[in-house]
Design a protein around this nucleic acid. Structure first.
Lengths: 122, 122
DNA sequence: TTAAGTGTACTAGATGACATAGTACACATA
DNA sequence: TATGTGTACTATGTCATCTAGTACACTTAA
């Protein structure tokens, strides 16, 4: 389900966060589906439960999962997720736009790039 | 010229790198202009010279400045810089596009956003 | 030639984020 | 009641970052 890349300098808990975000957004995990328990996943990955705990807490903070004490962690409703993810992407595109402005790079270059990129994928 | 935000968790050397990149790209520092010496800037900011050294090494690695031993550090030629910066921005926009695809967000949303954003600034 | 300013390369130590190890407690369910 | 679950806590080790200090090679101006 998820794995760890020890050669990656990204903190383990962050790798886990990113992978679950991908799985959830891709639809590989469906709404209200239970994800592995803190202890189980820790065993499976041969890492400490505290690290999984930290990853799950972050996923909950960002709205990707919800927690029920004594029962486990579950995937948040799909509509909410799409909104969250869309907001994130819009923040990122805004950041790149600001970066381009500050550097004197024409926004139209970005638009053209996205447009040609979109076409070539049809 | 540059400053440090101790409340910012970003490493000091990275803050300095980012600020010089901004100054250079904005044109606040011109081609072949000398930037403060390692020791001077360290004194001014009340931090260790090694930290400035690390920042300057990174700036040189990224092509923003060039170093002449015994003389100091200087801003790279403007044309090269614009190319470097443009490449960086294109990498970023590509990353956002990939992110959008993976999440099922239509690239046209991004294009529309950039387009309306561009218009409203006229 | 000499002194001052410059980049560069070391070693040694402090601090904080990250991860591990172990324990304990509260809650839900079969 | 037993098991599985989330959660909280302390202690320890590792590593990146930063500081501190020293040393050397180079450039420039006096």
């Amino acid at each position: 389900m998820v794995w760890i890349d020890i050669k990656d300098s990204t903190p383990i808990y962050e790798q886990i966060v990113n992978q679950f975000k991908n799985l959830i957004v891709r639809g590989a995990l469906s709404t209200d589906e239970k994800i592995p328990s803190v202890r189980n996943l820790a065993m499976e990955l041969s890492i400490n439960p505290n690290t999984i705990q930290k990853a799950y807490a972050e996923l909950e903070r960002q709205g990707y999962i919800y927690t029920v004490k004594g029962r486990g962690n579950f995937v948040s409703p799909r509509e909410e997720l799409m909104e969250i993810k869309k907001s994130e992407i819009m923040e990122h595109i805004e950041a790149v736009a600001v970066e381009a402005e500050k550097s004197g790079v024409d926004i139209n270059h970005l638009i053209d790039y996205l447009r040609s990129r979109n076409k070539s994928e049809d």
